[in-house]
Simulated assay, not measured.
Amino acid sequence: MIKCHFEWKETIVTILADSDFFVEIARKEIAACRFILENYISKNPFFKTTLETYGKDPSAPPLIQRMIEAANTFGIGPMSTVAGTIAESAVLKMKEAGAVIAVVDNGGDIALYNAGEKPLVIGIYAGKSDFKNLGFSIEPAPDILGICTSSGTVGHSISFGISDAAIIFSKNVALSDAAATALGNALTTTGAENIKKALFVIQVPGIDGAVLVEGKDIGFWGKIPEIVKAHIDYDLITKGKNVKTVNF
């Protein structure tokens, strides 16, 4: 298994793959996605800044349309989906090229393809919460899985909530990214009952399951992978210089 840290402008990722060949495919796709995104924003600057629903644009590249559709599901801005959408695009290219294992962690928004023989364990990093050294055991499957995380206490991404980790599982990684943001925004007050209420926000078609962590409380919805003990090494967290992000 090859592990590679890769930075392209503001995009900072960790790539896991069978070989350097697939890592290079992921790098090229990430750069291509950045080019598409930057070109669109140069002509449509509101796309980058809005925190609310962005109108459908049938003339936009498919990457942009996926971002808009996912974000509009939750009434939030399309840039809330950028990390998951880019990660998904890279893993899809790796899968199409024949990779057996392909993972791109874009600052806690993870696209994962596991066609191997063993589960992959993705750790839970929830800052200073009570939940430590736990992970999700991801069984081999034919589809790409999105595991996306938002946090109001960890990392630099915008969140209007107080969650330590709002984690979403979906086969649509862009949708998973948008849902994680929406779930994180929904929790503004501590307590188990408020976690339960917040989880209603993401119960839409396409979302398989969710985990919401805040302090000593944790809530679950839908179908989630088995939770197992795991050693969470901070040095494995995807981050650039002076940047903290949530990941495995």
Rank of each mutant, 00 (worst) to 15 (best):
Ile138Asn: 00
Asp143Lys: 15
Asn106Thr: 07
Gly108Thr: 07
His156Gln: 02
Ile168Gly: 02
Ala141Arg: 15
Ser151Arg: 00
Asn194Thr: 11
Ala182Trp: 05
Val104Arg: 04
Ser163Ala: 03
Ile158Tyr: 14
Gly152Ser: 03
His156Asn: 04
Leu134Lys: 14
Gln203Cys: 06
Asn185His: 03
Gly127Asp: 05
Ser163Gln: 01
Gly107Asn: 01
Val173Tyr: 01
Asp164Leu: 01
Asp105Ile: 08
Leu187Arg: 10
Val201His: 15
Ala174Lys: 12
Ala166Ile: 08
Ala186Cys: 00
Ile168Gln: 09
Ser170Cys: 00
Val204Asn: 08
Ala192Ile: 15
Lys132Asp: 12
Glu193Cys: 08
Asn114Gly: 10
Ser170Val: 04
Tyr113Lys: 01
Thr189Ile: 14
Leu112Arg: 07
Gly108Glu: 12
Ile144Leu: 07
Ile195Leu: 09
Ile138Arg: 09
Ala165Met: 04
Ala198His: 15
Leu199Ala: 10
Ser163Arg: 00
Ser151Lys: 06
Leu187Asp: 08
Leu112Cys: 13
Asp217Trp: 14
Asn185Val: 00
Glu214Leu: 13
Pro140Arg: 13
Ala115Phe: 08
Ile167His: 00
Pro140Ala: 05
Ile195Cys: 03
Gly135Ala: 07
Val121Asn: 07
Asn133Arg: 13
Ala111Pro: 05
Ala179Glu: 00
Leu134Tyr: 07
Ala141Asp: 15
Val154Arg: 01
Phe136Glu: 10
Ser129Asp: 07
Lys171Cys: 10
Tyr125Cys: 09
Leu199Thr: 12
Tyr125His: 08
Cys148Tyr: 02
Ser176Pro: 06
Ile158Ala: 09
Pro140Trp: 10
Lys216Asp: 12
Val104Thr: 09
Gly191Glu: 08
Ala180Gln: 05
Thr188Gly: 03
Ala174Trp: 05
Leu212Met: 06
Asn172Phe: 01
Asn194His: 15
Pro119Ala: 11
Glu214His: 14
Thr153Arg: 05
Ser170Ala: 07
Thr149Met: 04
Ile167Met: 09
Ala102Pro: 09
Thr181Gly: 05
Val173Trp: 00
Ala182Ile: 03
Ala182Lys: 03
Gly215Thr: 13
Asn172Pro: 01
Leu145Arg: 11
Phe131Gln: 14
Ala198Val: 11
Ala198Ile: 08
Asn194Asp: 12
Ala178Gln: 09
Phe160Met: 05
Tyr113Gln: 06
Lys171His: 15
Ile124Trp: 03
Val213Tyr: 10
Gly152Val: 00
Pro140Tyr: 06
Thr181Ala: 04
Ser151Asp: 01
Ala180Thr: 06
Val211Cys: 07
Leu112Asn: 12
Gly206Thr: 03
Ala179Ile: 08
Ile207Gln: 11
Asp217Gln: 08
Leu212Pro: 10
Val104Trp: 04
His156Lys: 07
